[in-house]
């Protein structure tokens, strides 16, 4: 799964970004650049789905792909997918449920809540007191304490309900995935398994295990959060879609809407004008219907669109050269942002 996702990202990025871009994307880096890459290259689903990814793991996987002839290196840390690599992707069919840009934080929280809640409810059923919580993140524990105090009287009745719901939610997955999911859980008289133990048991590569599990949690999250009659709905109701902008961008955009001047916003916010430009590009990425007339003439936008088509790249430098340097990078970026839906 990991190598499939890498190939997908690399092929969509078309060697226009370095592999570090993939690394930041999968780890969910909170930066304008990562956010824009996710949107422009249509790989936003993968945003933040592998927050614990280590750089060495990525490098190792890329090295393997290269050795197998599925990818080739270009200069400056960029990599593209070979025809053989493309072919191998088409052979792989696996349903992926990721929608990271919107939900990576919500699903991460949901995953931790569910693992901890299963441990709590199971220990209640087994009448075990005094155990170490499997998730030691503060906010998750605070949530669990509150949730527990509301329902400690009815845990025995709720356990079979949760059991049936989980069983049903596991239906679309393969036996290997089901085994992985269930073995990772701590409860009753057994502890959950580590990633390396799950890898060994399933015969799948260790770097795939977190992704398999996360993919399942995305599916479960989308099922239960849209069904208020489900038991697990209660674990998701306060978890919201990520805000469209980073909070800093949101501020700049609001100020720009008010004053209509990049320089003024930069002065108020004490930021570089180029940073404000980044934020405005973000605004167009999120809402391609947004009017860009203030930044470029209709004619200029047409010129840039034509150049993008002609060069079939999203590399700013190449586009700008094609246009003989007539337009600024900012103008090209804002038109690219506007074009996103019409591309690919």
């Amino acid at each position: 799964m990991f190598t499939y996702i890498l190939l997908d990202c690399l092929s969509k990025m078309n060697a226009e970004r370095t592999v570090s871009g993939v690394y930041h994307l999968l780890r969910g880096k909170k930066s304008s650049q990562t956010f824009q890459d996710a949107k422009v290259y249509r790989i936003e689903g993968y945003y933040g789905i592998y927050p614990d990814l280590q750089r060495e793991t990525l490098d190792h996987a890329l090295h393997e792909l290269c050795k197998e002839g599925k990818t080739v290196w270009h200069d400056h840390g960029r990599m593209s997918v070979t025809a053989y690599g493309q072919g191998s992707m088409e052979e792989t069919h696996m349903p992926l449920y990721f929608s990271g840009l919107e939900y990576s934080e919500a699903v991460e929280e949901f995953k931790n809540r569910l693992m901890l809640w299963i441990q709590i409810i199971s220990n209640a059923v087994y009448r075990h007191a005094g155990y170490l919580p499997i998730v030691d993140k503060g906010p998750v524990q605070t949530w669990a304490r509150k949730f527990y105090s509301e329902r400690k009287a009815v845990l025995d009745e709720e356990a079979p309900i949760l059991y049936k719901e989980l069983r049903a939610l596991l239906t679309p997955f393969s036996d290997t995935e089901k085994e992985m999911f269930v073995r990772r859980l701590t409860g009753g008289d057994r502890s959950g398994w580590t990633y390396s133990q799950l890898a060994e048991e399933s015969g799948e590569p260790a770097w795939d295990i977190p992704l398999y599990l996360t993919n399942m949690y995305y599916y479960m999250f989308s099922e239960v959060s849209s069904d208020s009659s489900s038991y697990l709905y209660k674990l998701t109701e306060d978890l919201v879609k990520k805000e469209a902008f980073t909070s800093s961008s949101g501020k700049s955009i609001a100020l720009y809407n008010k004053f209509g001047s990049i320089e003024k916003v930069a002065k108020i916010r004490q930021l570089q004008p180029s940073t404000i430009e980044d934020h405005l590009v973000e605004a167009v990425l999120v809402d391609p219907a947004r009017n860009i007339d203030a930044f470029i003439s209709r004619e200029g936008a047409r010129d840039i669109s034509a150049a993008v088509r002609k060069t079939s790249t999203k590399r700013l430098k190449v586009i700008r050269e094609q246009l003989n340097g007539d337009y600024s990078y900012f103008q090209i970026r804002i038109v690219l942002a506007k074009l996103q839906k019409g591309q690919g």
């Binding site: 059923v125 356990a159 059991y163 085994e179 999911f181 269930v182 008289d189």
Partner: peptide, 13 residues
């Protein structure tokens, strides 16, 4: 136990 039994055991003492 296989996953089905294990899952059952988590919720049934």
């Amino acid at each position: 136990p296989l996953w089905e039994e294990r899952l059952y055991n988590i919720f049934h003492a």
